[in-house]
Design a protein around this nucleic acid. Structure first.
Lengths: 199, 199
DNA sequence: GTGCGTGGTTAATGTTCGTTAACCCACACC
DNA sequence: GGTGTGGGTTAACGAACATTAACCACGCAC
């Protein structure tokens, strides 16, 4: 049997990423050292390099992963709604719900997502921005179907603003002040719809 | 006459703070060195220490300044509306307008405001948080007058979310894509009102 | 005109931190 | 039973960086 080691292989990788995301969100990319990340998973310091090429690579993987998940999930949701013959309004609701789920379940990632983009190297930053842009454009298309009066520019501005609204989740409540998740999700959903309706 | 020097006294201080805010917003507090801040104002490196006790002190002054300006401006606006016998709805509009002006005119500061709070020392962080809390409570009071159905908890959640919406300004448009400021400000104002109305 | 405060300068210091080196051990496999 | 590899360890290295030291020049008060 293994003498004392923790997870191994890709599981260890995921564990490191999870803890790194938490720490980066808490204290910023430059605010946390690799030793701390190692300590958070029970190994120490340079062992990280058995799993990642470096600190930058971890951040890049996190940010690309977030952006991909958001975009792919959004595409999937819109496609599902279309396939089931639902109206654009249902697609918008689905997009909002998906984004809220993500924001509530992966706070740390949402925080990182727009806080630490600047720390990436040019190539990675370009990729993340492209994914983000595609996600935004997906929303813009649906929003303009639901609110045909909106110009593309205005719709895009609305989408960015609503993202800001939805991503405010990490600022809501320190410890346990969000008693039921359902209630918070519903509120955010209504606020987002209200904002779009007013746009 | 002075041989070659730039501004002097408190003017130089303000100049340093302005450039530091810009750089911190661009690359994060830990991502920029004092040498760069000095270079941005035409002096080099340790000359900063003639004006500030250290890098931390600069950030603290920036964040306390932002929070104070927001809170004091908000209090002033609400008081003005009350003094002129205007309805709560006018006070809310005034709060929104003031916040948008700030967000549009001082993007860097808005960015810093919730990105770098964690880098402060405990004492400063406590002060900033207190100012922020007072600002939020000011909004909550007004919002609950305008929308009496809202519980305090829900109103607070709405206010946080709307802050997220209004503070999304830095994410809107890279270079010059906000053609007229007026239009952007109006849009954000309507979105904020729409969100509150839906809360 | 001597003196001092203000705001610079460059060089030095000490630490922190990312990364690499060198080494090691357990297990799978043949 | 040797061996290779995956995943650890600690020590060493080198760069970056905040801060301090030592020094200097100007302008103004007396």
């Amino acid at each position: 049997m293994s003498t004392r080691a923790g997870p191994t292989g890709p599981a260890r990788r995921r564990q490191i990423l999870r803890e790194a995301a938490r720490l980066f969100a808490e204290r910023g990319f430059h605010g946390v050292g690799v030793d701390e990340i190692g300590a958070a998973v029970g190994i120490s310091g340079p062992a990280i390099y058995r799993h990642f090429a470096g600190k930058d690579a971890m951040l890049a993987e996190l940010l690309v992963g977030i952006s991909s998940r958001l975009r792919d999930g959004g595409i999937q949701r819109v496609r599902d709604c279309e396939a089931r013959g639902l109206p654009p309004s249902a697609a918008l609701d689905s997009l909002i719900t998906g984004h809220i789920d993500f924001a509530l379940d992966d706070r740390a990632l949402i925080t990182l997502h727009d806080r630490e983009l600047g720390q990436l190297q040019e190539a990675d930053r370009k990729q993340v921005r492209q994914l983000q842009r595609q996600y935004v454009e997906l929303w813009v298309g649906v929003v303009r179907q639901v609110h045909p009066g909106l110009s593309e520019r205005r719709a895009r501005a609305c989408v960015h603003a609503v993202f800001g609204l939805l991503n405010s989740t990490p600022h809501l409540s320190r410890p346990a002040s969000l008693p039921d998740r359902r209630e918070t999700a519903d509120l955010l959903h209504r606020l987002a719809r209200g904002a779009f309706a007013a746009g």
